[in-house]
Design a binder for these strands. Structure first.
Length: 193
DNA sequence: TTCGTGATAGAG
DNA sequence: TCTATCACGAAG
């Protein structure tokens, strides 16, 4: 299982290295296939930039704590607090379901595996993550924690999705060619190269 | 492309 | 109080 030490580093490094790791959530689990880094200092998209409550959370919690919040009135977002030389968060954006597929299907009300956890709001619904998990330690109980990669993965990077500030920072990390990654909407022009 | 939905935070 | 904003998702 991934120790607290892992999250006592740079948020961008944590986000990149978390891709390919497994998230265990009780009986449910999945491979992290997409993350985003948010840096508490100098990143205008990070909650600490514009939310006093987020700054208070960082001050009061340790590395590896879950930072969970509701967005658009209906989607819970799961982040991990990172406190190393720099402080910030890693948003868990997508999982490849591994265990508990039936429970996930029930929670999501749909069948297609590739749609169960292919987005930050989807995976929290599939796992049952809510505000009640805000602040919990993800480095204490192995049943509610990240676990090391078993295989090597091809990690790609891109600008973050769905934000309006600091849109150019390439702090989204994902497993290339994995169908569970979000934002794989109908590909149109493949551009040329 | 539209719209549902609510917490947060700042302004009045 | 009132309002803008927000790291989204599903149906159409």
């Amino acid at each position: 299982m991934i120790s607290r030490r892992f999250f006592q580093r740079d948020p961008v490094v944590c986000a990149r290295e978390l891709v390919g790791c497994r998230l265990h959530w009780g009986e449910l689990s999945g491979v992290v296939v997409e993350t985003e880094a948010y840096d508490g200092e100098g990143d205008a998209a990070c909650h600490t930039w514009f939310r006093p409550g987020a700054r208070a959370f960082v001050a009061e919690h340790g590395a590896g704590s879950a930072y969970v919040y509701l967005n658009y009135g209906m989607h819970w977002m799961l982040n991990v607090l990172v406190k190393g030389r720099r402080e910030g968060f890693v948003l868990i954006r997508a999982l490849e379901p591994l265990a508990g597929l039936e429970a996930m299907r029930r929670a999501r009300g749909m069948e297609a595996v590739a749609r169960l956890c292919s987005g930050p709001g989807k995976l929290t619904q599939a796992l049952g993550v809510t505000g009640s998990h805000h602040g919990i330690d993800l480095c204490g109980d192995a049943a509610l924690a990240f676990h090391r990669r078993k295989v090597t993965v091809d990690v790609g990077a891109s600008p973050r999705i769905g934000i309006s500030r600091a849109v150019d920072l390439p702090w989204r990390f994902f497993v290339r060619d994995n169908p569970n990654v979000s934002g794989i909407r109908a590909k149109k022009k493949t551009g040329r190269g």
